[in-house]
């Protein structure tokens, strides 16, 4: 295995005042080929883990080493999708405009040619995966359904090739059928583009079927950390016994 993308060392997170530990002495490494599924019930510390990695919160103890960027706050290096789609879209703008804004390239006036190029890349990609979204590029994004929006965001994330993709229960606001589609798309795109990814869920089926690593959290501690081979041997029964 190659170098760790993110290296978590002795991480603890304490809630001030309550002196309850949300995360307790976590040591974990994310490598460049990983599609990690993090399983845990409510309050197990899944989201805290995600927020630690994308630097939304700071650990009380321990340190995190990144090997992805020298610049500290580089949003496009670590991208996060949550169940709150609204946080990640520009409402009342078209799908294409959303994409262009996400593709922010730091030049104010922007060359038309580069804009065309960027647009073409999206069109080609949508064609390749035969997404229904290719018909809706000029639609107001607020008129898309939740599932469509989440699928779109996923595609944009993939196209932008972040160094690390964090998915925090990104399907839990969707209906089961849509959730199934989005999550299998996730696995497909992430695998194809080789983007390191960490996905949290409390759905045991998803945890079993997707990803090449599994991490189970309980009361802020790692109770299970399995890699490829061992993960495939795992059965639902084993998992349930751990989960509860």
């Amino acid at each position: 295995m190659n170098n760790a993308v993110v290296d978590l060392q002795n991480i603890s997170v304490l809630v001030p005042l309550m002196s309850r530990e949300i995360l307790n002495d976590i040591n974990y490494r994310i490598y460049s080929n990983d599609f990690i599924v993090v399983l845990g019930s409510n309050g197990s510390g899944k989201s805290t883990l995600i927020n630690l990695i994308n630097q939304k919160i700071l650990p009380t103890n321990g340190r995190i080493n990144y090997s992805l960027s020298t610049r500290k706050k580089q949003y496009l290096d670590i991208m996060t999708l949550t169940q709150k789609v609204e946080e990640s879209i520009f409402p009342n703008m078209s799908v294409l405009e959303n994409y262009l804004l996400w593709n922010y390239k730091f030049n104010l006036l922007g060359k038309i040619s580069s804009r065309k190029l960027t647009v073409n890349r999206l069109k080609l990609y949508l064609q390749k995966i035969n997404s229904p979204l290719q018909e809706k590029l000029d639609t107001n994004i607020s008129c898309l359904s939740g599932g469509e929006r989440q699928a779109l965001l996923l595609i944009m994330c993939v196209l932008l090739k972040p160094k690390l993709l964090l998915l925090d229960e990104h399907t839990s606001a969707l209906d089961p059928k849509m959730a199934e589609i989005v999550i299998s798309d996730t696995a497909k795109y992430v695998g194809k583009e080789k983007i390191p990814c960490m996905m949290t869920t409390h759905n045991i089926e998803h945890a079993l079927n997707f990803g090449n690593r599994l991490l189970v959290l309980k009361n802020g501690k790692i109770v299970l950390d399995l890699a490829d081979q061992e993960k495939q041997k795992l059965t639902k029964k084993d998992l349930i016994s751990l989960y509860y």
Binding site: E87, I89, F90, P91, N92, M93, E97, L100, L101, Y104, N107, L108, L109, G110, R115
Partner: peptide, 12 residues
């Protein structure tokens, strides 16, 4: 492109 970004600023 600036206009797009201004609108992005307003939208979110």
């Amino acid at each position: 492109q600036l206009g797009l970004k201004l609108r992005g600023f307003g939208a979110n």
